[in-house]
Design a protein around this nucleic acid. Structure first.
Length: 484
DNA sequence: AAAAAAG
């Protein structure tokens, strides 16, 4: 089964081929023909399954068959976060190269001016977060009466974030006769209700959750005391001892994100931070620094837990155990992507016991407990030893992710077997002697002992199709219109 | 409980 068998146009197939993909993922196989036929669709799937391409590809063809110069937007894609909206826009740009389609990315945190200008010129596709869309609509800047194709992406997350009333309102502004696609990782009752109300005779497709038990992510728990400095100490040891080429570290609070990033930088790590209190340009800039390898550590709030798709993340650390088991699944799903292996550590304090139990219940998988790398008798949170920076610089090598890959892109033809990242991405891996998460010092602390690394559960089968990470450049939000 | 999203 190839993309050519799905009924896509030659122009589109060329774009897909040029991007290096030939074999559709399961959700793409099932969704694309149905979308092309104009049917409503419920897709139970989360990021990491090729979901985005499953609607972007057929949408491009559907829109391409209509008039090429839109007087008013003909389609609308709703995303819960700005970052996800941007990733979808990237996909449109990439697969739409051979089509004369224009789009506008309508998200908060950036000036409205350029978005308004784009709308006035006329676009085919709106990619939006609900808040900014409603805002622009309220100002009379958007006509939704021509939007006969609607995509509601990550519906369960929209629910979590309280967007459902907005979604309902937006739906009522759209033409009654339209095609609606709804994607959601789970189907809680409110989402079912939403689907019943706004979709007609939908086809339902479901693909396996990528981050259930049998994946290529090695999960570990490290018991720690609740003290912040002890947790930071443990984290630093883990960053140094393991083969960490790059890592996302999740915290539960924005203040913790800031404090931890500050502390890591003080200790010589190359880290960046992302959370919702930062303005959009700063968020983009930090994410970009992580994606292009300027830094190899990203300290993040749950703004980055879902959907954010960076190729080649070797480790996820939960500095705080997440409150909700779903968040755990999403967080650790930032690693082990694209068929690579990944490792997820969770620092667990005695108070977290209940949450961990919930996580293990959800995943049906008992997470391995490993001993803390910090001696119980009290390694202190000692300041970084002052020393001169004469040693080797490894910043260049920390920018390993060169190869193209699209978020949610169709799978490359390759073995379904999970392979170590270093075999498929020759630029990415670090020699194990030079774990790049190490502080930029030429020596490591004297008392650090490297534990014997054994029993790493690598090369396990995964039951999902491989998926590709996204590593494209960050779109220029201030001026984001693709002209046809 | 937190974070996210409109400003």
């Amino acid at each position: 089964m190839s993309f050519a068998d799905l009924g896509l146009s030659d122009d589109l197939l060329r774009a897909v081929t040029d991007a290096g993909y030939t074999e559709p993922t399961p959700i793409q196989r099932q969704a694309i023909p149905s979308v092309l036929m104009g049917k409503d669709l419920i897709g139970i799937a989360q990021t990491g399954t090729g979901k985005t391409a499953a609607f972007v590809l057929p949408m491009i063809d559907v829109l391409g068959e209509g008039r090429t110069r839109a007087l008013m937007p003909r389609s609308l894609i709703l995303e819960p976060t700005r970052e996800l909206a941007a990733q979808v826009a990237e996909n449109f740009e990439k697969y739409g190269v051979n089509h004369k389609l224009s789009m506008a990315l309508l998200i908060g945190g950036v000036q409205m001016g350029d978005q308004v200008k784009a709308l006035e010129k006329g676009v085919d596709v709106l990619i939006a977060t609900p808040g900014r869309l409603m805002d622009l609509y309220g100002r009379g800047k958007i006509l939704l009466t021509g939007c006969s194709l609607l995509v509601i992406d990550e519906a369960d997350r929209m629910l979590d974030m309280g967007f459902i009333p907005d979604i309902e309102e937006i739906c009522t502004k759209l033409p009654k006769v339209r095609q609606t696609l709804l994607f959601s990782a789970t189907m809680p009752p409110p989402i079912k209700k939403l689907a019943d109300r706004f979709l007609s005779d939908p086809k339902t497709i479901e693909v396996a959750r990528p981050a259930s038990t049998n994946t290529n992510i090695t999960q570990r728990i490290v018991q720690v005391s609740a003290t912040a400095h002890v947790k930071r100490d443990v984290l630093r040891r883990l960053l140094q001892q393991d083969e960490v080429s790059n890592a996302i570290i999740f915290c539960n609070r924005k203040t913790t994100v800031r404090d931890l990033n500050k502390s890591l930088k003080k200790h010589g790590f190359r880290s960046a931070e992302i959370h919702g209190d930062m303005d959009q340009s700063a968020r983009i800039a930090e994410l970009d620094r992580f994606k292009n390898g300027d830094v190899n550590i990203l300290v993040a709030s749950d703004v980055a837990a879902r959907g954010i798709d960076v190729k080649g993340v070797s480790h996820v650390f939960n500095f705080d155990a997440p409150w909700h088991p779903d968040d755990y699944v999403h967080r650790i799903g930032r690693t082990g992507r694209g068929g690579a292996t990944g490792t997820a550590y969770t620092l667990v304090t005695p108070e977290d016991a209940e949450n961990i139990a919930e996580i293990e219940k959800l995943t049906g998988h008992k997470i391995e407990r490993v001993p803390s790398p910090v001696a119980v008798d009290g390694a202190e949170d000692a300041p970084a030893p002052k020393r001169t920076r004469g040693g080797k610089r490894d910043t260049k090598k920390a920018a390993p992710r060169r190869e193209e890959a699209a978020a949610e892109a169709p799978a490359k033809p390759r073995s379904r077997r999970a392979a170590p990242a270093r075999e498929e991405a020759p630029a990415a891996p670090a020699p194990r002697e030079e774990s790049r998460a190490r502080p930029q010092r030429d020596e490591r602390p004297v008392r650090e002992e490297r534990p014997v690394r054994d029993d790493r559960r690598r090369r396990r089968d995964q039951d999902d199709g491989p998926d590709e990470g996204w590593n494209g450049p960050i779109p220029d939000f201030l001026n984001y219109v693709i002209e046809g």
